[in-house]
Simulated assay, not measured.
Amino acid sequence: MRKGWMPASVLFIALLSACSEDVDKADQLEPSEEPTEEAAEEETDAAPESETEAPEEEAQEDTESGEAAAEPAEEDGTAEEEAPAEEEAQPEEEGTPEEEPAAEEEAEAGDDSVNAAGDKASESEEETNVGLKAYMPDGPMTKTFLQNGEYEATYDIVAVKGNFVQRVITFGDMVTLQVLEWKEGSIAVVYEEYNPKDTSNMLDTFEPVETINVLVDATKGDTDQFQIVDQKATVQSDVQTFDNVIIVRSVSQGGNVITLQSYAPGVGLIDEQIEDNGDNGYEVDSKLTALKK
């Protein structure tokens, strides 16, 4: 055998041994590296777990503290929300009564306007309608007048019903039946008959057809035709002294005839003066001399 030469089989075995040793060394090295990776994994796992647990605990604490803080906040918030709601509700409730009085004030203002208009109308009526019905005869009666101191005329009040007064005027041989319609602002003859056959009460079935003559008209206030001279006059007669007498001046026949009539409350006509300034002028002065009810 040559020095330094080695059989191939021995060389192959040596190579196998060297490879085995390398493999063994690699195997020995792997166990040292595996624990390192496992430790790293354990450290990695442990670190997140600890870090995770810590935030979870903090989160739990924060959650609990948040819930604890949230509960008062919710309660406070609810109270605060409810309080404004109540405050808002209160103004609405307060506003409603304020609106209702406003409506009532408007209604009252409207009612005041209507009342004011009614008052004005009433004042107008009082100005134009002088309450002549107070001067109607209050029942049947007989009044005797003396004209110009020598001629006697009798006024028999036959009946009084509603606005109507039936009277019969006897002057010498002349008999005149009249029905007067007596309103607050006017007195008018609505029926007239000369020398009637029957002078008894006809008012139960009477209905006016036309106006024969207007004795007094104060519905338009003082006019050229009618004027209220006095409403509180005192008139002395042979019968008695009458107070609160109304005196009415009327003009007719183109201004030629001027008449002054005096009416006493509950009696009617108590005095009449006529002045005719026409071609056939004359004067009449009728004074009440007797009154029988």
Rank of each mutant, 00 (worst) to 15 (best):
L11S: 12
L15T: 08
L16G: 11
L16T: 09
S20D: 03
E21K: 10
D27N: 14
L29H: 11
P35M: 15
P35R: 15
E41R: 14
E51T: 13
A54Q: 13
A69E: 14
E80N: 07
E81A: 11
E82N: 10
E82M: 10
E82I: 09
E82D: 13
E82S: 08
E86T: 04
E88F: 06
P91Y: 14
G95V: 02
E99F: 04
E99Q: 05
A103I: 10
A109I: 00
G118M: 11
E127K: 11
E127C: 06
G131W: 03
Y135P: 00
T142V: 09
N148H: 01
N148F: 01
I157N: 05
K161F: 01
K161L: 08
Q166N: 03
I169T: 11
F171Y: 13
L177G: 02
V179I: 12
V179Y: 01
W182V: 03
K197Y: 10
A218T: 15
G221I: 09
D224M: 03
Q225S: 10
F226Q: 02
Q227F: 08
V229E: 05
S237P: 06
D238A: 12
F242W: 07
N244C: 03
V245D: 03
I246D: 02
S250N: 04
G254D: 11
N256D: 13
V257S: 01
I270A: 00
D271W: 11
Q273L: 05
E275F: 10
D279M: 09
G281E: 07
V284E: 10
K287G: 07
K287I: 12
L291F: 07
